[in-house]
Amino acid sequence: MTLLSVNLNKIAVLRNSRGGGEPDICKAAQTCIESGCGGITVHPRPDLRHVRPDDVRALAALLRGRVEYNIEGNPFAAARGEYPGLIELAREVRPTQVTLVPDSDGQITSDHGFDLDRDIDRLRPLVHELLDLGCRVSLFVDAEAERFEPAAAIGVERIEIYTGPFAHAFAEGKPRGALAACANAARLAHLAGLGVNAGHDLSQANLGAFKAAVPHLAEVSIGHALIGEALYDGLAATVRSYVQLLQ
């Protein structure tokens, strides 16, 4: 079965828009767990525009020993203010998985993966440090990537396929090419000995087609669409619907 990891960034965005502590990100995580999700994802950024370091720490205490905890971020983004850096956060809370994403400070959301030929030497020491902390390491990659052996060689255990282009193509009624690219990336990663995760703009509308076509799918990370759908149907019911789709 493919694990559902619920990304809670949008809960933090809503809270931050007003200030204070509501909606409570830990209460949201508890609801997701009780509704059957297998993991919680957060993507803290240096500008603190959604999930903050204190959220990362509070969630770690709540999740430990219950479900997987996935922290995403750019390992090259410098520490500043309250943000201690991705590696330092991992050192503090020891999440199940750290997903390395090459997003810049100015990006609204992640929109591309690592170039493994270009970035592998910079990633190597950071991957080793995370492995020493006991974290599984995943790399955010484009579906068009064709060589995953360099990632496996430095200790990376999974890739996360960037599914934004697939979701866009699906919405336009022309998903075949993008879906084939994702399936090919999954097969190549599996041949290289890597597990396969996926995420970005996946929704109830497109997840069934994606799951049916992409082999070896260990985990999907879904936030924006799931939280948006939960405004209409409720968070617990929406999480249960996603879990059912993945079964």
Rank of each mutant, 00 (worst) to 15 (best):
T109F: 12
H112I: 00
H112F: 10
H112C: 02
F114H: 05
D115L: 13
D115G: 10
L116E: 00
L116I: 01
L116F: 02
R118V: 12
D121W: 05
D121G: 03
D121T: 12
R122W: 11
R122P: 00
L123Y: 02
L123W: 02
P125Y: 09
P125I: 04
P125G: 07
P125D: 01
L126F: 08
H128I: 00
L130K: 04
L130M: 12
L130T: 08
D132G: 07
L133P: 04
G134S: 12
C135H: 01
C135R: 04
R136W: 02
V137P: 02
S138K: 02
S138Q: 08
S138Y: 04
V141E: 00
D142F: 00
A145K: 02
A145T: 12
A145W: 01
R147Y: 10
E149C: 11
P150A: 11
P150L: 07
A151K: 04
A152H: 14
A152I: 10
A152V: 09
A153C: 09
A153E: 15
I154D: 09
G155K: 08
G155N: 04
E157Y: 01
R158H: 14
R158F: 13
T163C: 15
T163Y: 03
T163R: 03
P165A: 15
F166N: 06
F166C: 11
A167D: 02
A167G: 05
A167M: 06
H168Y: 05
A171C: 08
G173K: 10
K174T: 11
P175V: 07
G177L: 15
G177M: 10
G177H: 12
L179H: 06
L179V: 03
L179A: 05
A180L: 10
A181S: 15
A181T: 15
C182M: 10
C182I: 07
C182V: 08
C182K: 05
A183E: 02
A183L: 09
A185C: 11
R187L: 13
R187Y: 09
L188I: 00
H190E: 12
L191G: 14
L191D: 13
L191V: 11
G193W: 13
G193D: 11
G193M: 13
G195T: 06
G195S: 13
G195W: 06
G195L: 13
G195M: 07
